[in-house]
Design a protein around this nucleic acid. Structure first.
Length: 595
DNA sequence: ATGTGGCGGGG
DNA sequence: GTGTACGCCACAT
């Protein structure tokens, strides 16, 4: 038996002897023996829940199917205690195969928790958090070749989670960029070769591989494109990064490399387990996947984080760092490449600068996402590609599991389009009084909606549908009612998030260490993002905890409070001149009464 | 006003 | 892979 401690980078499962085996990819830190590790667990089985009309009849009907185990269990379903059947299956792929059959049984009302990818289920149920340290017991493989049989690990989480600041510097981040060109526009992967591949890492590694010569010593010349691609593979192997970053690498660099490598028959066995680069469809875009290395495309990421008119690498770089980087307009790259003097040299510089810019943007932006990863509890690869709403949803799913409850299903597409037809009145807006104003004062509610959710206990599980008017909060206008006790699921989660944030902010006041301050600031920003996203989700058609009543109640109370505050301010001698949702501006015209 | 289609970004 | 998810603007109806 070995004991190993490592940072959990990634997770998946493979099938061995018809059984699912979870693989945890990690990086050993804080020891001399740094390195990649793959830990295996074959003792975890998929399961789903069923709400039966009649439990015994249902067990009877289920016995026709080949299921591993069926068990009666009482659980809370959005505040309501119900009898469930927990059905354990042999293999994750049995779930999509059998759930429809099970759902169609006469004694089954509904199937629940049937759409959770196996690795996510594992992270949640084992209480594991990617980008945090994990301790495992058992036989453990070092990377390369996973041919050994019957490995088992028993997992234990470290009691004291490591601080991000002690993990971040240990991670090796490799950044890259490719150059190709075409006289008529965008290079075509079928005809135009790759001319350069640039690398830059957070450890100071900088190199450009090219099929042309240069006087720069950061350029290494190779005889042909085949060798260039081999260098690409070799560099990733020798640098052994934990993360690989690019800019539009999901949509351009990796697909281009894959196509060129296929044409030139260069194997792209980049994964730490030796598997090739592959693409996964994730919603409307593809994501390039290298097993065991976290690939992050900063382009879609920056689009979500920065509200800009354009998101070119140049534009984003200027926004973050204020200064311009060397830029060559797209249509001049062909001319530069076919010049053999100064212009070609400039292209080498530009190419490396792009990789360096990616390094710098990564260093600035990644701590926030790593922090979110450690809160949300899903892999960094997934978290950086998720909309905030999805991050919140996975966070709530984990919280539901921790509470011991069953979470809601995703809505069917018909339910979703029905929801889309519902419209909720937004925040109160008062058109500005035109003209120049003196003595302007601004009034702001600090996180108005999260506060309302907590103080009025607005949650699907505390929503009342009976006629009683006892012990509840009644919303203005529509008159939705929320039980005062017990604390609802969403309010208590938001409450915890805001409480954690408060704790971090007070820690910030005591700290003077700039690097600690920076990390703490990132943490509180991550928590703020989560808290501020939650209210709007009640009105998102695909949200598992969707509730039009909750949504209406929040904005109704919001309008009520801002109007009331405006009235109060008028009594104190202020004249509101503009209001929007959670704050207003007013001019001071003096006390109305003499005193 | 509402529906559908295309695009971003990469060289 | 226990999958299939963006958000905005242009343009047409």
């Amino acid at each position: 038996m070995e004991n190993k401690k490592f940072v959990l980078l990634d997770i998946d499962y493979i099938t061995k002897n018809n059984k699912a085996v979870i693989r945890l990819f990690g990086k050993i830190i804080g020891e001399e023996n740094k390195g990649t590790i793959i830990a295996l667990d074959k003792n975890f089985k998929p399961y789903i829940y069923v709400i039966p009309y009649d439990a015994n009849e249902c067990i009877n009907e289920l016995s026709e199917l080949e299921l591993f185990e069926v068990e009666k269990i009482r659980k809370n379903d959005v505040g309501e205690s119900k009898e469930f059947l927990k059905i354990t299956l042999e293999h994750p792929q049995d779930v999509p195969k059998l759930r429809k059959k099970i759902w169609d049984l006469p004694s089954v009302e509904v199937v629940r928790e049937h759409d959770i990818p196996f690795y996510r289920r594992y992270l949640i149920n084992k209480g594991l958090f990617p980008m945090n340290t994990v301790e495992v017991q058992g036989k453990v493989l070092n990377s390369n070749k996973s041919s050994q049989e019957n490995e088992t690990c028993i997992f234990e989480i470290e009691n004291e989670p490591k601080h991000l600041e002690s993990i971040l510097p240990e991670l090796n981040v490799l950044n890259f960029d490719i150059e190709a060109c075409n006289p008529r526009g965008m290079p075509q992967e079928r005809e135009d070769p790759i001319n350069m591949i640039s690398f830059s890492s957070n450890q100071g590694f900088q190199k450009v591989f090219s099929t042309k010569n240069s006087s720069f010593d950061f350029v290494e010349t190779v005889p042909d494109e085949r060798e260039l691609l081999k260098k690409f593979v070799e560099t990733i192997k020798s640098e052994n990064p934990d993360l690989i970053l690019g800019y539009n690498s999901d949509g351009f660099d990796f697909p281009y490399i894959k196509e060129r490598a296929a044409i030139l028959r260069v194997p792209l066995e980049l994964g730490v387990d030796g598997t090739p680069l592959k693409f996964m469809r994730r919603g409307y875009r593809n994501a390039a996947v290298i097993k065991g290395i976290i690939h992050i495309d900063l382009y879609p990421y920056m689009r979500r984080y920065l509200q800009l008119d354009r998101h070119t690498l140049e534009r984003v770089y200027k926004e973050l760092f204020g200064d311009d980087k060397v830029d060559i307009p797209g249509d001049e790259i062909y001319t530069c490449w076919n010049d053999d003097g100064e212009k070609l040299e400039k292209l080498f510089e530009y190419s490396l600068e792009d990789a360096v810019a990616v390094t710098k943007i990564g260093e600035k932006m990644l701590p926030l996402s790593m922090e979110l990863t450690r809160i949300v509890g899903q892999p960094l690869f997934d978290v950086v590609r998720m909309a905030t709403g999805q991050q919140v949803e996975w966070y709530l799913i984990r919280k539901t599991f921790e509470k011991g409850d069953v979470f809601p299903n995703k809505p069917s597409s018909s339910k979703m389009s029905k929801r889309k037809g519902n419209h909720v009145i937004g925040g109160y807006v008062m058109d500005p009084v035109t003209g120049l104003h003196d003595n302007i004062v601004s009034f702001d509610f600090q996180s108005l909606y999260p506060s309302i959710i907590i103080s009025k206990n607005i949650s699907p599980d505390s929503l009342m549908d009976d006629d009683s008017k006892e012990n509840c909060y009644i919303s203005p206008e529509e008159g939705h009612k929320f039980r005062k006790e017990p604390a609802g699921f969403v309010p208590s989660v938001i409450g915890k998030v805001l409480h954690d944030r408060k704790r971090i902010k007070s820690k910030m006041k005591q700290s003077t260490d700039p690097s600690e301050l920076q990390i703490l600031n990132v943490q509180q920003e991550a928590l703020k993002r989560l808290a501020n996203t939650m209210y709007g989700l009640y009105n998102h058609s695909s949200f598992r905890w969707y509730s039009i009543n909750c949504s209406e109640a929040i904005t109704a109370w919001g309008r009520y409070y801002i109007k009331k505050t405006m009235e109060q301010s008028e009594k104190q001698g202020f004249k509101p001149i503009y209001a929007d949702t959670d704050g207003f501006y007013a001019t001071y015209i003096g006390s109305l009464e003499d005193d």
